[in-house]
């Protein structure tokens, strides 16, 4: 019955773009869920898709069983500082990072599980006043942190026992970096967004700051999610956490902006707005803002303040599916599984639903 009630509502999307409930897991600890992510479990040349859930005081690893059931394999206890974010490491098995802190990230830790002897460990990667962090391909982690007026943008290489000795510093912009995104199709490039709505580009190999490109103040506090290099242009997916539905045009939650890095000029390519108009209101019942989101390839998912999850096709600029608030509560988390067309939607009570997209 519960599964039926959580059947997603389609917003004029083709059938193949729908969300299908695949399985559900629930932490029985009754702790408030703060994040969910996925990880590859690698053993004996095989890869297994696992789910990682976090509450304030612990992080749990879940492995799939037969019949779409999930088994909690291990729980890392993390101590005094609350967990606020899981930081997945793309293309890396048996490792995941977590951010701990209160309002800001104060500490990053590496959680490690050995496939050989089923041992589970955790180690400290970094401490400080950390403003942004992203797991990169190739077992790397990039972060921006502040010490007084000084900003440090640093890449650390991760070993199975924590951070490696070697690291690299990237040239920081004057303004604080709030988010990072790897550039698909360009291995040595990294982009970030700053507090003054600049998109910055780095050369990861040399650490050079190559360009600062202004986005404009119409949509403050833009956050970069993904970037793609194609035909001499840099396409950046930005989200706007303060988007609100508007009668006239509908403020976009996500925008794809094309930048010419040579001239720093930009042009908006596609807007993806909050569900608006009659059908949106019928489904959601009230005007809603955007809380948080996640982007993978051309698909974006976001949790709205109404407690619904909305999925967009960023190339079409259109909502393709909507999960209304569940019978047991509002959605609080929406994440794409690494490397698969699977959406994880979570509620604060620890219920995580996996949908095939």
């Amino acid at each position: 019955d519960v599964a039926e009630q959580w059947t997603p509502v389609l917003l004029d999307g083709p059938t193949e773009e729908s969300l299908q409930l695949v399985s559900k897991l629930k932490d029985s600890s009754n702790s408030c869920a703060v994040d969910v992510s996925t990880m590859w479990w690698e053993a004996g040349g095989c890869r297994e898709f696992c789910v990682v859930t976090a509450c304030e005081s612990s992080v749990s690893l879940w492995k799939p069983l037969a019949s779409d059931r999930w088994h909690k394999v291990y729980t890392w206890q993390v101590g005094e500082i609350p967990v606020i974010q899981i930081i997945p490491l793309p293309d890396t098995g048996n490792l995941v990072c977590i951010a701990l802190g209160d309002l800001e990230i104060a500490e990053i830790r590496l959680l490690f599980c050995s496939s050989e002897n089923d041992s589970f460990k955790q180690s400290l990667v970094k401490t400080g006043t950390i403003k942004a962090v992203l797991g990169l391909k190739g077992r790397r982690l990039v972060s921006s942190s502040r010490t007084g007026q000084e900003q440090q943008v640093e890449i650390v290489w991760l070993s199975e026992t924590g951070r490696s000795k070697d690291g690299q510093t990237l040239m920081p912009p004057e303004e604080t970096v709030l988010a990072f995104a790897e550039v698909e199709g360009m291995r040595d490039a990294l982009v970030g967004t700053t507090t003054v709505n600049d998109v910055v580009v780095w050369n990861l190999r040399t650490g050079q700051l190559l360009k600062k490109m202004h986005v404009g103040y119409s949509y403050p506090a833009s956050i970069c999610h993904r970037a793609y290099s194609d035909s001499g242009l840099l396409f950046v997916v930005l989200s706007h956490p303060h988007a609100k539905e508007s009668e006239s045009c509908g403020n976009p939650v996500f925008r794809v902006i094309a930048f010419n890095p040579r001239t720093a000029r930009s042009a908006a390519v596609v807007f993806s707005s909050l569900p608006a108009g009659h059908s949106g209101r019928q489904v959601l019942g009230k005007i809603h803002g955007y809380l948080e989101g996640d982007v993978q390839d051309a698909s974006a998912a976001a949790v709205l303040t109404s407690g619904a999850v909305v999925v967009w096709d960023l190339l079409l600029g259109r909502c393709t599916a909507l999960l209304p608030p569940g019978p047991t509560g509002h959605w609080a988390l929406a994440r794409w599984a690494t490397g698969s067309a699977c959406l994880l939607a979570g509620q604060r009570d620890g219920t995580i639903c996996l949908y095939r997209y």
Partner: peptide
Amino acid sequence: CSESDLGPISLNWFEELSAEAPP
């Protein structure tokens, strides 16, 4: 997007900017 909006486009922008930017 066209060159009239965005200015001259270079397929090698990353290498060119890396050569021009301070080390």
